[in-house]
Simulated assay, not measured.
Amino acid sequence: MLAAFEQEAKQVNKPRLMITAAVAAGVSTIEAGYQIAELGKYLDYIHVMTYDFYSSSDGRTGENSPLFGGSNSYLSVDYAMNYWKSNGAPAEKLLVGFPTYGHNFNLQNPSNTAVGAPTTGAGPAGPYTKQAGLLAYYEICTFLDSGATQAWDAPQDVPYAYKGSEWVGYDNIKSFNIKADWLKKNNFGGAMVWTIDLDDFTGTFCKQGKYPLITTLKNSLGLQNSSE
């Protein structure tokens, strides 16, 4: 494919089309499915899907995209990105995945709201995304405004919130800034977002302007246009 793209670029006298891939962040999947050093040679960018580390099938609460690991260090952005890098993927080709959604859970015991607390399954579906166990950032803002208790998961550098038997682990402006600073410090190639339409695209739910998470990320990486 690379050779074909290079040949086409010469024929049309335009820059070569890029070759990229979205790849897993879970170590067992990485080991079973990728020849990292070979991918590092041929791909222009490697988008690491550093989210969905915990979900309702785990039977306990967990963060969607923790920067650092808690009890399981390998289930984190830091571990996954450095695993790809240490096994042959050039840091400048590695893009960190930033989620604009969270995973919610139904607590087994509403009085146990800790990270890792037992759950009975997925939390209720959001009014717009309509998928049990997942909430868009703008739906999370509504949950927070409804009187949910907000907490900061210091070991993993991401927030979570709970109300009654519902618990959600997610990302916010603070965690996006922390992750972006970490990304730059570790000289990774950049970031990718999943997904544009799960951010607060109207700016009416979170009262933080339009696309607050993506705008935060662009500003942190020095990519914001002066006209925006």
Rank of each mutant, 00 (worst) to 15 (best):
G69S: 03
G69E: 00
G70S: 05
N72C: 09
N72I: 08
N72M: 08
S73V: 13
Y74S: 14
Y74E: 15
Y74I: 11
L75E: 09
L75G: 03
S76C: 00
V77E: 00
D78Q: 02
Y79D: 05
A80Y: 00
M81H: 09
N82R: 09
Y83L: 07
Y83Q: 12
W84G: 13
N87W: 11
N87V: 00
A89Y: 05
P90M: 10
P90L: 15
L95V: 15
T100V: 15
Y101D: 14
Y101E: 06
G102H: 04
G102E: 02
N104C: 10
N104V: 07
F105N: 11
Q108P: 15
N109F: 14
P110M: 12
S111T: 15
S111Q: 15
S111V: 13
T113V: 12
T113H: 08
V115D: 08
V115T: 04
V115L: 11
G116R: 01
P118R: 14
P118H: 12
T119L: 12
T119Q: 10
T119P: 13
T120C: 05
T120M: 04
T120L: 10
G121I: 13
G121A: 03
A125P: 13
A125M: 12
G126Q: 01
G126N: 01
P127R: 08
P127M: 06
P127E: 06
Y128E: 11
Y128C: 02
G133L: 03
L134T: 15
L134S: 10
L135W: 13
L135A: 09
Y137A: 12
I140Y: 02
I140M: 05
F143P: 12
F143Q: 01
S146H: 07
G147N: 12
T149S: 08
T149P: 00
Q150W: 04
A151S: 07
W152C: 07
D153N: 15
P155G: 03
V158N: 09
P159N: 09
P159E: 05
P159Y: 05
Y160F: 12
Y160V: 03
Y162L: 05
Y162D: 08
K163S: 13
G164T: 10
S165I: 14
E166I: 15
V168G: 08
V168L: 02
Y170C: 07
Y170I: 01
S175T: 00
S175M: 02
S175K: 01
F176Q: 02
F176N: 04
N177P: 01
I178D: 07
K179N: 00
D181P: 06
D181W: 10
W182P: 10
L183V: 15
L183S: 09
K185E: 14
K185C: 08
N186T: 04
N187V: 06
F188L: 09
G189C: 07
G189I: 03
G189S: 09
G190D: 13
A191D: 07
A191Q: 04
M192D: 02
M192N: 08
